[in-house]
Amino acid sequence: MNDTNQHAPDFANSAVESAFAAFSAIVRPQLLQLRQLVFDTALQLPQVGRIDETLKWGQPAYLTPDTRSGSTIRLGTPKEGGFALYTHCQTTLIADFRHLAGDAFRYDGNRAVVFEGNEEPPLDLLRPLVASALTYHLKSR
C-alpha cells in the first residue's frame, strides 16, 4: 500500500494544471500520485523549503528555488508510452537509485524511472529517489 499522508496543493500554475489535464486518462492518476509524492517528501525534509511547480520541456517540473537544495524532478510520458519520473541526466541520481533498487524498476539510462501505463507506482520505494533529488545539492556543500 502506498503511503501518502498529505494533500498536494492546488495548482498555482495554470500551465502545469493544463499539462496534467493533457495527459491521457490512463497515466494521469499515476502522475498525480507522483506529484503527491514530491510534495509529501518535501514536507518531510525541512531543509528543502518551498517547492516550485513549473513546466520544463513541456513537462511538470519540481524545483527548490529558495534553498537550491535539489535537482529538478520532472514527470511525463516517454515516447514509448507509459509514464516516467525524470531526473537531471548529468546527476548520479538514477545510478545511485539503481544501485539501491536494482531490477525492481525499469530505467531510461541515467535520466528516468519508467512505468507501464496502468502500473501503480510503488511510492514508498520511490521516496528515496525523490528525497535524494530534493537534497542533491546539499551533498556537495
Rank of each mutant, 00 (worst) to 15 (best):
R50P: 00
T67C: 05
T54V: 13
D10N: 11
L34I: 01
F105P: 08
D10S: 12
D40G: 00
L45S: 07
D108Y: 06
P46R: 00
Y86S: 04
F83N: 08
T67K: 09
V38D: 04
V113M: 03
V130E: 13
W57N: 07
S24T: 13
D96R: 15
F20T: 04
C89L: 10
L63W: 13
E120L: 14
D124Q: 10
P9D: 12
A25T: 06
E119M: 11
S71Q: 05
Y136L: 04
T67L: 09
A84N: 12
V38T: 02
V38L: 03
R141V: 12
D108T: 11
V113L: 04
T54Q: 06
A12T: 12
F83G: 12
A131L: 01
L129Y: 03
D52V: 02
R68G: 07
L31V: 03
L75R: 02
R127K: 13
L45A: 07
D103F: 05
R74N: 02
L134M: 09
L43S: 08
A15L: 10
T72R: 06
V48C: 03
D96W: 05
S24K: 05
Q47P: 04
Q90F: 07
F97A: 04
A84E: 11
P9F: 09
P121I: 01
A8Y: 04
L55P: 03
I26E: 14
R127F: 00
Y86E: 04
Q36C: 07
F83Q: 12
S18E: 11
R127T: 00
P46G: 05
T91V: 12
F105R: 10
R106M: 06
D52Y: 08
T67Q: 00
R68T: 15
H99V: 08
R106H: 14
E120N: 13
L100F: 05
T54H: 09
T64W: 13
D3C: 11
L138C: 13
A133C: 08
L75T: 06
E116V: 01
A22W: 03
L31G: 02
S14N: 12
L34F: 00
L100H: 14
D52I: 00
A84M: 08
S14E: 13
M1N: 07
A101E: 01
T41H: 10
S24H: 01
A84V: 11
S132E: 03
G81F: 07
V48Q: 03
P9V: 14
V130W: 10
L37G: 00
A112D: 10
T54N: 06
L37K: 02
P29M: 05
L93Q: 13
A22K: 15
Q36S: 12
T92E: 08
V16K: 01
T92D: 13
H7F: 10
R50D: 07
K79N: 11
S18V: 10
L32H: 06
P122V: 06
S132F: 01
D96M: 08
T67Y: 00
I26H: 11
W57A: 09
A101Q: 05
R35N: 03
V27S: 08
H88G: 08
P122F: 05
N5E: 09
L123H: 04
L55N: 01
S24R: 05
V48Y: 10
T67N: 02
A112M: 09
A133V: 11
Q59A: 06
W57V: 11
V27D: 02
G58P: 10
